[in-house]
């Protein structure tokens, strides 16, 4: 019996070793450990083993069973490992990824507008909007622009047959907001489209995008205007950006300024680039608002405010070094995909 067991162990281990695949290994298991298997058969013979040999034969039998079981288990793991390795064989990990649905992009104007909005919201500005088809009153009269002002003619401004016009600036949203305001302060920004009767070329669009800002309260000063816009442009262009305010003229602010930032174009010396207009709200604007409202919420003797406006198309061009403004309306994918974030 003992020698039988030794032989059986040898046979079993050899059979395990020879098993090529999972099913061959299973056959080996059945042959030796199955109900009718050789090891099982020998186990059944234990009852015929003399008592004095039982201990020795029993231990041997256990040894054989353990060796066969472990052998099968080890072979199974080895086979699985080989199979797992085989499963990734031939994969060229250096191939490009699958495109999925592909990569889209937000338009660069959307991106710059969002940056501007996020920056100004951190300073407590809320958004406002107004119609693009405007009345002359909201676009010009209320903004202290006299009836015979050069901008108010059919050469420069698009009109509708009914006398309304396409707003020439987002400043009309200042008026819309103050007309509807319930109380002070008024602190808004208004991104939006504006229209001018310009031939489209590399630097002009007939429809363009602006961002308007307005802060009206008691005791708003030129210092607030300066602090706010310095902060804004340094957030946009970097903390060390030089910002300067040049006196200028707009009918609806006094004093008025144009803002330049000093920027380096690729390979060129830094230079001042005009980027926005701003000023303190002209008291005549408050007077017009009060008249329209029929109250004195915007008392020109005690209320002050600042307003600013900037061209988002121009900002995008400066920021990204875009050489022709028409790229912004062509929507050529070769252009748009450069701005995939």
């Amino acid at each position: 019996m003992l020698s039988q067991l030794d032989t059986l162990k040898k046979e079993a281990l050899a059979a395990i070793d020879a098993a090529q695949d999972e099913s061959a290994l299973e056959a080996v298991r059945v042959n030796f450990l199955g109900k009718k298997g050789s090891v099982t058969a020998l186990s059944a013979g234990m009852k015929d083993v003399p008592v004095d040999q039982k201990k020795e034969v029993g231990a041997k039998l256990n040894d054989v069973r353990t060796a066969v079981t472990d052998g099968i288990e080890a072979k199974k793991l080895a086979q699985q490992a080989a199979k797992d390795a085989k499963a990734v064989e031939g994969i060229d990990i250096t191939l490009p990824g699958r495109p999925g649905a592909g990569v889209g992009a937000l338009h660069p104007l959307t991106q710059i507008r969002d940056l501007a909005i996020r920056t100004l919201r951190r300073m407590g500005f809320a958004l406002a909007e107004g119609p693009e088809i405007e009345t002359e009153w909201h676009c010009f009269d209320a903004l202290n622009t006299p009836a015979d002002h050069p901008a108010r003619n059919e050469k420069d401004t698009f009109y509708l047959p009914d006398g309304r016009l396409l707003r020439t600036h987002t400043s009309s949203v200042q008026i819309r907001t103050m007309e509807a305001a319930k109380s002070l302060p008024v602190r808004i920004i208004a991104p939006g489209a504006a229209y001018r009767r310009d031939e489209i070329d590399a630097t002009h669009l007939s429809v363009f995008n602006q961002l308007e800002g307005l802060y009206v309260n008691q005791d708003v000063s030129l210092g607030d205007l300066k602090g706010t816009l310095e902060y804004f442009f340094r957030e946009i262009f970097g903390p060390t950006t030089a910002v300067r305010f040049r006196p200028h003229f707009f009918p609806f602010t006094e004093p008025s300024f144009e803002i330049d930032v000093k920027l380096e174009a690729k390979g060129k010396d830094a230079r001042w680039i005009e980027i926005a207009g701003c000023g303190m709200v002209d008291p005549a604007v408050f007077t017009a608002i009060n008249k329209a409202r029929g109250d004195t919420l915007f008392d020109p003797d005690t209320t002050t405010g600042f307003a600013f406006g900037l061209g988002l198309d121009r900002l995008a061009m400066i920021m990204h070094g875009i050489t022709d403004i028409r790229h912004l309306i062509d929507n050529d994918v070769r252009f748009l995909q450069q701005f995939a974030a």
């Binding site: 958004l127 406002a128 808004i188 030129l222 210092g223 607030d224 300066k226 602090g227 300067r244």
Partner: peptide
Amino acid sequence: LDRVPSRQVAVASPVEAADRTY
């Protein structure tokens, strides 16, 4: 404007309909 000290006043603004739309 070099002579004018910069001032930054942040004022809490209630969210407007335009904010939600945006």
